[in-house]
């Protein structure tokens, strides 16, 4: 993967992951729990909030402990901290948003294995201060989120004609002109939208492109 310079001064730490070093489109991280929940906007939003929460907690916790962490159990401690955050988020969702929680089902638990969290914790929080780690978490979280929300919005709009559950486009079945695109209801559509998104970003930022061998 191409490695782009990432300046560590606070504003860039937050801003870069939004496009320049976006975790999904550049680093190919965090796809797992991303695409499957994007069939409509609400789960995408809740999932994004969950990931931002977990990422922030994990980054801050690891950053606080980075000087006392014995190398031999480093990975286990990181996973434990991440798992703690995920358990808390999962329980909170089950208590205050049970309908969305059942839609998201196992995917909230899978945030533990979400590559973004582990990658940021290992590569940034282990070597940087608490404030910078928090910014990094927020930046990466938002970088992840806007893509998720965009895909969710497109899929819900074209697949159901609604956004956040509210009818936006008049459906043909109720006398309107909009014929919902059934493909959008299937998970492969998330891939296609993502491909177009990556294409668009790399047309604007040629530095992110691969050579002919795909490297």
């Amino acid at each position: 993967m191409a490695s782009l310079p990432q300046q560590d001064r606070p504003p860039r730490v937050f801003v870069d992951p939004l496009i320049e070093t976006n975790p999904i489109t550049l680093r190919v991280l965090g796809l797992c729990s991303a695409l499957a929940v994007t069939s409509s906007l609400v789960p995408a939003l809740i999932m994004s909030a969950a990931v931002i929460a977990v990422l922030s907690f994990a980054n801050v916790a690891v950053s606080l402990l980075r000087h006392v962490m014995p190398p031999s159990i480093r990975l286990i401690i990181e996973v434990t901290l991440i798992a703690t955050a995920v358990i808390v988020v999962d329980e909170v969702l089950k208590a205050f948003a049970p309908d969305v929680s059942s839609v998201l089902s196992v995917f909230v638990g899978l945030i533990i294995t979400n590559c973004i969290v582990l990658a940021r914790v290992e590569s940034f929080a282990m070597h940087n201060g608490v404030w910078a780690s928090l910014l990094d978490a927020l930046g990466n979280g938002l970088g992840y989120s806007w893509i998720l929300v965009l895909i969710g919005a497109i899929r819900e709009l074209l697949g159901f004609g609604s956004l956040l559950g509210y009818k936006v486009l008049p459906l043909a079945s109720t006398g309107g002109w909009f014929e919902p695109n059934r493909l959008m209801l299937l998970t492969p559509s998330a891939f296609f939208i993502l491909a177009v998104l990556v294409w668009w970003i790399r047309e604007r930022r040629p530095a992110q492109r691969k050579d002919a061998q795909g490297r």
């Binding site: 402990l65 006392v68 962490m69 014995p70 159990i73 286990i76 401690i77 434990t80 901290l81 798992a83 703690t84 358990i87 808390v88 329980e91 909170v92």
Partner: peptide
């Protein structure tokens, strides 16, 4: 370190649940 982290995390998780 291992025991402390485990203890604190368990405390957080148990209280929330």
């Amino acid at each position: 370190v291992a025991v402390s982290v485990a203890f604190v995390c368990s405390l957080i998780v148990s209280s929330v649940v």
